[in-house]
Amino acid sequence: MTAQAAIKDGDAGIADRRRWMGVLARAGREELEEAWTALPSKPAHRFMRAPEIGLVMVQARAGGSGNPFNLGEMTVTRCALRLDSGVVGFGYVQGRDKRRAELAAAFDALLQTPETRDEVLRGVVEKLAAAQAERRALRSRKAASTKVEFFTMVRGDNPR
């Protein structure tokens, strides 16, 4: 195969990149715009693939652990852009918001650039991740408030 790894020496590992792409994909439009506005300097970029709306077929497993089946599709928007430095960023985000996909791709490119990585990780990705964790925890605590406490149950018998 003639293709080669996009991640070259000195660049971030795939595990890091998967994480930040997941965080960026879950970020709201306003959050991303705000983070973009707050950047001290915005790099010039051009599209390699202008933001484009499409579908992903979501698969699930029979019984949760059996053979796969097609559940239904979801909308997704993708974008690929190149910074002047040559670094290419990708955005794949749920829904139909082209700007979100563009911003996710732009941040992905900045995160692959050694000079900007730490700053964007700290200033953008970690903040977004914290907000997402907080939203998730809030939902979970609300659900936890509806947990049934059976009379017959002895607390000690029910380890969390």
Binding site: M1, A3, Q4, A5, A6, E52, A80, G86, V88
Partner: peptide, 18 residues
């Protein structure tokens, strides 16, 4: 796992994809 593409020097695709 397939290897990622080095997209840095790629030529553009359709100017107007649709």
């Amino acid at each position: 796992m397939t290897l990622a593409i080095d997209a840095r020097d790629l030529a553009p695709g359709f100017a107007d994809p649709v």
